[in-house]
């Protein structure tokens, strides 16, 4: 599911001087620029994650964070002082908020545990078969032709549900001197300086 980031610039004490004097945050043209700065900052942050967080199983990379980067959209203006940026990727909300994922009735979740399985649906493989345990869980394995009688090579765990912890670090911070709010305010201030200089 997609994720939206909403930032409301409702504290004039944080504004740079020109934005504060002119109440420029209320101007749609300035806020469009601030919103684009937020979107650009998000894209750069996801480029950084793509470099720093390859999948832990190894195997062929899917560049999840590269996909997320490309799904960042142009922000919407919200109310008189807000901007909302949507990140339109199916997996980002789960990464941020975490939570439990439960299989549909009668089915199991397939959790990859083999580098070759990462980034693949289990049904893409035509040579796996299940081994079930007493507790109802199981594994999907590929037979070892070299070692008949061996359990085989485990590709997926089969479980009813899985819990994923949320991770706020999948988004850059909003606050602080390098946060999204500061980046947006600096971009708005810089653009307003240009407009004022032209009008002078």
């Amino acid at each position: 599911m997609a994720l939206s980031v909403l930032i409301e610039f409702d504290d004039p004490r944080k504004y740079p001087p020109l934005l504060r004097l002119s109440n420029g945050v209320q101007r749609p043209d300035i806020r469009r620029v601030m919103g684009r700065a937020i979107a650009g900052a998000l894209r750069r942050y996801f480029t950084k994650l793509d470099r720093e967080r390859p999948n832990q199983l190894g195997g062929t990379r899917t560049h999840f964070w590269g996909q997320v980067r490309r799904s960042v959209q142009q922000p919407e203006l919200v109310g008189g002082d807000g901007v909302k940026v949507a990140i339109n990727h199916v997996g980002i909300a789960q990464r941020y908020f975490g939570g439990d994922i439960e299989a549909s009735p009668g089915k199991k979740l397939t959790i990859p545990v083999n580098p070759e399985a990462y980034g693949h649906r289990a049904r893409e493989f035509t040579d796996l078969h299940p081994i079930w345990f007493e507790d109802g869980s199981g594994v999907l394995v590929r037979d070892h032709t070299e070692s008949p009688g061996d359990i085989g090579e485990v590709f997926y765990r089969l479980v009813k549900r899985v819990h994923q912890d949320g991770d706020e670090t999948v988004l850059p911070p909003e606050d602080g001197k390098d946060g999204l709010e500061a980046i947006a305010l600096n971009a708005g201030e810089e653009h307003l300086q240009t407009l004022v200089a032209r009008a002078a």
């Binding site: 469009r32 620029v33 684009r36 470099r51 960042v72 959209q73 653009h191 240009t194």
Partner: peptide, 25 residues
């Protein structure tokens, strides 16, 4: 989509250029 959104007049005025760089290793 990103290109098209960047053609909005105010955004183009504030960000008139773009850099070509590596975004995925």
């Amino acid at each position: 989509g990103w290109w098209k959104q960047g053609q909005q007049a105010d955004i183009l005025d504030a960000f008139p250029a773009q850099e070509f760089l590596r975004v995925e290793d």
